[in-house]
Amino acid sequence: MTGRVLVTRLGHMVLVVLAVMTIAFFVLRLATGDPARLVNPPGTPENIIAQTRAQIGTDRSLPVQYLTYLGDAVRGDLGTSFRGAQSVGRTVMAALPNTLSLAGLAILFSAAIALVLGALAAWRPGGLFDRLVLGYAALAQATAPFWLAVMLILVFSLRLRMFPAIDMSSWRSFVLPVTTLVVALSPVLTRTARQSFLETLNEPYIKAARARGLPNWRVFAVHGVKSASMPIITLIGLQLGFLLAGAVVVEAIFNWPGIGKLILDSLASRDFPMIQGGILVAAVVFVVMNFVVDLLYTLLDPRVRAGQT
């Protein structure tokens, strides 16, 4: 990636984040009434509400609020929660690793499962295993993630007591939420892996490698996997959004202290700075991850590295 490409790319990322910030800000402001009233519980006297309004700054005009928000955000200040005095930046950054570890593990396992299942299915298309893999993909894709999470808790937490039902406390806590996300994410990846294996295996260089005397497993493991994993990496980049959405649901069900739960909880009390902060950080993570995916792609594919596509 040349310097120029890099600069353009970074510019794009900034624009995307800016667009997301803007949309989030105005959607939140325009869709509801007075946040100051929503911050205070029922029964709060009007003058206290007015006080709150001044305190959280919603008494100023929208453009002023927006520019203040942008200005503060540029300086790294995401503001203060409407509820209490918590710093949004600190709260969101504390939640971020929890979401990232969940999503990261889900991606890791999904990609591994997709590669293995996709490869085995592509080994003999139309065979029994291929049918089983496609069956799994179809079934998993048709399963609503939240439903699966509920059922997993019912069986493994409440009945068998094998894994915790909520929270992030030990490695066991990861099992059920990660499983839920993997089931949600792996079907698409598995199908892609299978298809890209099939396509790769039809490439002349695969036949050429076999003609050179390489055993099938080696052709498959070295030549096939390396080439076939590229579309999967691209797809993971595209699926990050889906994963984040899934994380919201999973975090809500498992009480996972991540960004998704933070946003949902903040919605309940119209804590706009917190929602905005959560969405902003999600967007930043998202564009950065996509950037990383592209870098990874570049590392794996020398053609892209040399600037050809």
Partner: peptide
């Protein structure tokens, strides 16, 4: 595509 609009 660059943003999980489902969040929004």
């Amino acid at each position: 595509l660059a943003f999980p609009f489902i969040l929004l």
